[in-house]
């Protein structure tokens, strides 16, 4: 039986009353889709699901993790990475420290992509990398830096496009070996990030719905890609305001390639191609 909007709203209000998790401002379509999948995977109906989360806190945590898991990949959307490489990073050439926040880092591919890029640009040593997510399971994957090779094989092409090639100069080709950054084991079916990358990241659990910046400093670059698509317009706007407050002057916000800042907060940012820079107001 298809879920009704009432079912979903009831489930959200139950979660809110028995836990710290507030999905009130989630985009109802994707939320419903997640719940439908959870019901099928757990062979439950909505009533049974509600009863079970009420009684079983461990199950509740698991359900929240299932709702908040997002897929990502190495150098997702190479065009965005070209903008970061050629338009954004040159602005930080002379800055002694660069603070970077990967907000909603999921399984970490974006974090490693950025570190690889920073290292190629000679900027990794002076960069501080912070990564947060509401879902500690996906962050554990990020911390381990180990991925299934066959799911990621397609994305090595992205590495080539961003790290080896120059889209503005087809004659330029840097033969950067993958082994500099990760080891591929086809027998074990793994891609494992090299230890010098693993140790550079500070991971923290963070709930973007409820919490502002949990670090006591501001950032030069905030990544928040394909996270806000799960939130409604009002919550998106609140978060764009929070990011603005927590960006340094000349700081950049990087969103997913099909996300944009709509409404009032848009005037706080300059849209520069695929990224946004902080407007000083």
């Amino acid at each position: 039986m298809p879920l009704t909007q009432e079912d979903i709203l009831l489930f959200i209000s139950v979660l809110k009353s028995i836990s710290n998790y507030d999905f009130t401002e989630y985009s109802i379509k994707s939320f419903t889709r997640r719940i439908e999948k959870i019901l099928i995977d757990n062979k439950l109906d909505i009533e049974a699901l509600i009863n079970k989360v009420k009684k079983d806190p461990v199950f509740l945590e698991q359900i929240v993790k299932d709702i908040t898991v997002n897929t990502t990949e190495l150098f997702r959307d190479p065009k965005t990475w070209h903008v970061i490489k050629y338009r954004v990073m040159p602005k930080f050439e002379d800055k002694p420290f660069i603070n970077i926040w990967h907000c909603g880092c999921s399984t970490g591919q974006e974090v490693y992509s950025m570190m690889i890029l920073l290292n190629e640009l000679g900027m990794l040593e002076r960069s501080k990398i912070y990564a947060t997510d509401i879902n500690t399971d996906v962050m554990d994957v990020a911390k381990a830096g180990r991925y299934v090779y066959r799911f990621n094989i397609d994305y090595l092409e992205n590495f080539d496009q961003v790290i080896r090639q120059n889209p503005f100069n087809f004659e330029e080709y840097k033969d950067v070996p993958y082994e500099r950054y990760f080891q591929i084991d086809k027998v074990k079916d793994t891609i494992s990030m090299n230890p010098f990358l693993l140790n550079r990241v500070i991971y923290k659990k963070h709930d973007l719905v409820k919490q502002s910046n949990i670090f006591d400093f501001k950032f030069d670059i905030i990544f928040c890609r394909n996270v806000l698509i799960y939130f409604n317009y009002e919550l998106q706007n609140k978060i764009f305001g929070m990011f603005h407050e927590n960006l340094n002057n000349l700081g950049y916000l990087v969103l997913g390639i099909h996300e944009s800042i709509l409404g009032q907060q848009a005037q706080k940012y300059n849209k520069k191609g695929l990224v946004y820079s902080k407007k000083i107001i």
Binding site: S27, R33, N70, I229
Partner: peptide
């Protein structure tokens, strides 16, 4: 309006 998702 549209909404997008990157779920699996």
């Amino acid at each position: 309006y549209f909404s997008l998702s990157t779920e699996e």
